[in-house]
């Protein structure tokens, strides 16, 4: 009996060891491919320029330059745009996900969800350029507006404007937002909704007090996709923005163009810090484990 227990215990220790070894691989990858570069970036942000390269030092010059210059306004504007795109994206994506999860047949929902992946078969830059054609002064949208008598002349603000950037960002990131929302809503326990009805709650009250709170983990995940993607975007502002429209990705690239590595590193560090703060706030508000649990249940 004792020998058997010993063998079982050894087998159990072996399994634990194997699990740890298996876990070590992705951990090593994350550390090597993500944490080390991030750490280097953070350290370099305090270094100083030496000719065309950088040398070790501890100076806040790059942070001072960033916070005292016009680039801070780019950060502020990037946060505003990313937040706006996230909210608009949720407003558009939630009803789509809601109907796909709760109002249509499952096979039809899967087909429609598949359709949302079709745009990703086209190159991202070409997809963005297609908006230029659609929204230009001589493009189909303006022609339709004029033909319908809704505009006497081409509407300028459709393209190379805040509007165009928001359209481009929503077009790019909203499909990513639909999937976690659908996953959250699809996994919802329908009996809770039925219970709400049986207790006399109206559809609106049921949605606000049952469906929406239970789908918040999906909202959280969708918001992450929308916000992080929009915040770091650089191609859409260049192609669809107006005169010198910039988000943080663009201004970091611009600093790199003149080999100002410490400034680029400082700006990137601030961006990462802002993202971490955002994630922490959402984590505290909605509990990240709930999202992960939902996704895990949905996947397996």
């Amino acid at each position: 009996m004792g020998a058997l227990q010993g063998r079982l215990s050894a087998a159990s220790r072996g399994a634990v060891l194997a699990r740890h070894a298996l876990l070590a691989l992705p951990l090593a990858f994350v550390a090597g491919a993500l944490l080390v570069p991030l750490g280097l970036m953070f350290v370099w942000s305090f270094w100083e320029r030496a000719g065309f390269w950088i040398r070790p030092a501890f100076t806040l010059a790059s942070y001072t330059e960033f916070f005292a210059g016009v680039r801070l306004s780019v950060l502020e504007w990037s946060l505003v745009v990313a937040a706006g795109v996230t909210v608009l994206g949720l407003v558009l994506a939630y009803p789509i996900a809601y109907f796909l999860a709760l109002r249509v047949r499952r096979d039809l929902a899967r087909n429609v969800l598949l359709l949302f992946t079709v745009p990703f078969l086209v190159n991202y830059i070409i997809r963005t350029f297609s908006w230029v054609y659609l929204l230009s002064r001589t493009g189909p949208v303006n022609r339709a507006l004029i033909a319908a008598g809704l505009a006497g002349r081409p509407v300028d603000w459709l393209l190379f404007s805040d509007f165009a950037v928001v359209v481009g960002l929503i077009g790019s990131y909203m499909p990513f937002m639909i999937y976690p929302l659908w996953a959250a809503l699809d996994g919802l326990d329908r009996r809770l909704v039925e219970a709400s009805w049986l207790l006399g709650a109206s559809p609106g009250i049921t949605f606000l007090s049952v469906t929406l709170p239970l789908s918040m983990p999906g909202v959280f995940a969708a918001a992450i996709f929308g916000f992080v993607g929009s915040f770091g975007e650089s191609a859409v502002p260049i192609i669809l923005g107006g005169v010198g429209y910039q988000l943080m990705g663009n201004t970091i690239t611009s600093a790199l163009d003149v080999l100002n590595y410490p400034l680029a590193a400082a700006m990137s560090s601030v961006v990462v810090a802002a993202m971490l703060a955002f994630l922490l706030a959402w984590y505290l508000a909605f509990d990240l484990r709930a999202v992960l649990g939902k996704i895990a249940r949905w996947r397996f």
Binding site: E65, G69, V70, R71, S73, V74, V243, G244, Y245, Q246, T251, S254, A255, D257, V258, N260
Partner: peptide, 15 residues
Amino acid sequence: HVEVYESEWARFKAA
């Protein structure tokens, strides 16, 4: 003064 060029160009774009 390439850095000044770049930072001033950033000012133009952000204006």
